[in-house]
Structures are given as C-alpha cells and as structure tokens.
Nucleic acid binder design. Structure first.
Lengths: 250, 250
DNA sequence: AAGTGGTCTAGACCACAAG
DNA sequence: TTGTGGTCTAGACCACTTT
C-alpha cells in the first residue's frame, strides 16, 4: 500500500523530478524566493534541460512556481481566492469595492459565433463590447469581454461618449437599468488569446480559466460575459459566503 | 487596429501552427476523425516533431483534440456541460439519476493538510474517505474523494459494512441524516494525481479542474469533497437553470 | 553585456494498442 | 509485429530583463 512501487511501472523522469522539486519547495524555499536557473537545475539533477522544463511547467500549472523570461523562476504565493458566483445576481459593475473590476474600453462589433449562439442573435448582429480588467494587489487577475446586444440598452442609440473607460462606464450604467432576472455560469480551461495575455501580463497560450456568464432580463439573454482568469494565480470561488477577493479563504 | 501586425513581433511557429490546425479542424475534419500521425504532420508543415507537438498540446488543452498512445490523434467532440453548482444544496448522493455519481469505495485515513484545514480538524485526525466516480455516456468525467470526519456520522462507530461500493453507500446514507445548512465551492486548475488519472482514463499529470466543495451542517464544516474533472472534456456549469449533465447547454 | 526563460531542431528509445 | 503517441537528449538560437 504505502510502498514505493519498485519501478514495476517505471515513472517518467520529469514526474519524479516534479515530486522532488515539490518537496523541496515545501521545505527549503520561501515564497518569492528565486530558484537556480534551468541550466543549473538540469545539470544538478542530471537531466536534459527540456526534461527539467517539463517538470517546471507542471509545477507552474499547479500554481507552485512562477517563471518570467529574463528574470528567473520564483516560488509562487498561494492562489488568490476570487469570488465569481455572485449569488445576489447583480449586474456587472454594481458590486462593492472589493469587486475590483475596472472598465477599460468599449466598442461595437460582431461577437464570435459561440457568443452569438448564447445571445440567440444572428451570426452578423453587432453588439456593444465592453472590456474590463479585474485587479487585485496590483496584479491583473482577469480580462473580460462583455457582449451586450443593442436591444438590451435602447438608451444607447446615440453614441456620444468618447472611447476609453468613460464610454465603457456609460454602457454599463445603461445596462443596469434593466431588471436582472437570473444568470448562469460555466467554467472551462482554455489558453490565453494574444490580447488577453497582454492584459494579464502573461505569454499567449498560457492556461486560463474561462468563465462564461449569461445574464437574463426581459425573458431573454440580455448580455454575455466571457472572463479570462489567470489559471496559475486564481482559485475561483462560488459560495454562499460570497463577496469579493479573498486571500486564502481557508 | 484590425491589421495583421506584419511580424513586427514574430509569432512563434507553434502558435501559427496551432491557428492553421485549428482552422483546418473547423473546415476539413469531422468529430472523431483521425488526423495524420505526428511525424507526418511535422514533415508536412516543415517543422520538428517537438514543435508540432507543442501545437497539438495546446489544442488538446482547449478540448479540440484527443490523443491516445498507440492509437492516434482524433478530433474531440464539444465539451460536455456538467452541472456542479447544485443550487438546491443537497448532500452528495441524493441527486436524480442524471447526477451519475457512482460510489466506488470507502476507508478511513488522515486527510491531506489542505483538507484538514477546511475541516477545522487536527492534522492527524482520521476521517472517512469515500471515493466516487462521475460518468457520462460511458466516459469517466470526474473522480472524487469525500472526506467526512467521524463526528459528522455518529452512527458509524461500528464498521460492519464490507469494503467496496456497499460500504461507500452506507457512509453516504448516514451523512444524509444531517440537515445541510449550506455549501461553498472553489474551482482551480491542477494536474491529475496517479490514482485519479487511472480513474479518469488519462495519463498522470493531465490538466484537470479541481472542484472543492465544503458542506456545512450543525454550524460547522461537516464534510469536504475534492472532485477532479477532466479539463479536456468538461465544462463546469453553475446555474440557476441547474440539473445534471447537459450536452452543449448552448 | 550578461543572464534568464522561450523556442526549435534532429535525432533516439519506450510504452501501448491493434492487427 | 507494426504504428502510434510519450519521453528524453544535447545541442542551438532568440526575446527579454537587468546591470
């Protein structure tokens, strides 16, 4: 049971390496501490750099490490608990300060097919698109695109507001006039698109948790939000105990 | 804005490859269809196999492809929407048939430190551990470990039930006698442990979505579930419209 | 300029599934 | 036995950050 398996099924090197490194992180390193560089670690363990990297990649995926080009590999802090569930069913932008969403911009565009499907919209129907960013302790946690069909915000036929945050706020304010009847959400794994990656201070392709929220009002889908959370630093919480960003909601 | 960037920041090869393959999947391949093998694809695109694999890995991460050793690479079906939120706040095992959780086994053990913390238990306190599997269409979706302090199920001091599913069911039945007062959940990215990987029919280290559920009863944490969902095939839904496994809850 | 992680190559061998 | 994806090597060069 508790034995060591005696290599009857030989463990891949990178898997064993990962275990060794993981234990070392627990016992010998402090959060924020910088590890020896990849070439040295590989030499020290007697493996090729690619193999060492395979282990580091998994540890980064699990939120144990953080790697930055030109800088080095550091021990990551525990993941931040981020409230996502919002049991109060409120519109975006109406939360308290802990919500920490910052409007960035807004424009009009045809949504991607998957979003159009959720909106029951035609494939070529334009929507307002509001970009927001969620921050915590100066670090970006998530980048979001909010898709709002023109029909949901009838007060916005005349677009006087300039670009940038001001316009985004105008659209959100208009959206809040509707009575929200419900929402549902889905979470899945994805990889960061180039634009989101930039917003999140990560490389394109980094693993992200994609949260799709559908807002219901007036008996139909009034808006759809697609939020991209950094998978390395975030733990998404859906709780009765709701509310804002938590550090170690243990 | 909408321009093509003219390579001022040269795109990595694997990133471009991923785009090309992704478009090809949309237009030229049907779900379940098998792709040419990696050596041939690499030759066809004029890149090393490792580079081609980097592109395939990302597409698999996004749920577009499925790769099986000894078999080949196939086009994956759309992700399955799996209801996780459970707005009714019911105990595990009390859902309808669509719930599709199957008890596997039960034993007693000291939970990992992270779980003990959630249970407000001492680091060496034993709990009942119930293993369950969630299936859909013959495919395993998730593997779960349910940790139940002995104090939550006082009726179980005498353990007469044999091992296996029968014993697991006995523990769950006993747990249901408590009045559930609430629950909260968290979702984060992880990599499959060896035991979960086996249960999920994946290789160890595959990306998984880890759902941690805390059940409240009698004014304290009465149980903690740690469920490991296949990230490649699952989209976790937290909805007002709740209920069971959905295929494309679009 | 030096040092870091990120990308890429061209091989090799292994574990697994299917004929 | 054959063919597949999975692991591993020993290099090379590039992009980025810091000094």
């Amino acid at each position: 049971m508790g034995t060591t398996q005696l290599e009857s099924v030989p463990e891949p090197k990178y898997w064993h390496l990962k275990t060794v490194l993981s234990d070392a992180l627990d016992s010998e390193f402090a959060v924020g501490e910088i590890l020896p560089n990849e070439r040295e670690l590989a030499a020290r363990f007697g493996v090729a750099r690619a193999t060492l990297r395979q282990a580091l990649e998994q540890l980064e995926l699990e939120g144990r490490l953080q790697r930055r080009r030109g800088v080095g590999t550091t021990v990551a802090p525990p993941r931040v608990g981020v409230s996502v569930g919002d049991p109060g069913h409120s519109w975006p932008g109406t939360g308290d300060a802990a919500d920490a969403w910052q409007p960035v911009d807004s424009h009009q565009a045809v949504p991607p097919a998957a979003v159009a499907r959720l909106l029951d919209a035609g494939p070529d129907e334009e929507t307002h698109v509001v970009r927001r960013t969620r921050m915590s302790h100066g670090q970006p946690l998530a980048a979001e695109l909010l898709y709002i069909p023109a029909g949901s915000v009838p007060g916005l036929s005349a677009i006087d507001a300039p670009g940038g945050p001001a316009r985004a706020r105008t659209v959100l304010r208009e959206l809040c006039r509707l009575e929200l009847e419900g929402q549902d959400q889905a979470v899945e794994l994805g990889s960061a698109r180039a634009d989101d990656a930039k917003e999140l201070d990560r490389l394109p392709g980094s693993p992200v948790l994609i949260v799709t929220t559908r807002y219901y009002a007036q008996g139909r889908t009034a808006a759809v939000a697609v939020a991209t959370y950094r998978a390395d630093t975030c733990r998404l919480t859906f709780g009765d105990t709701g509310g804002g960003v938590q550090l170690l909601a243990g």
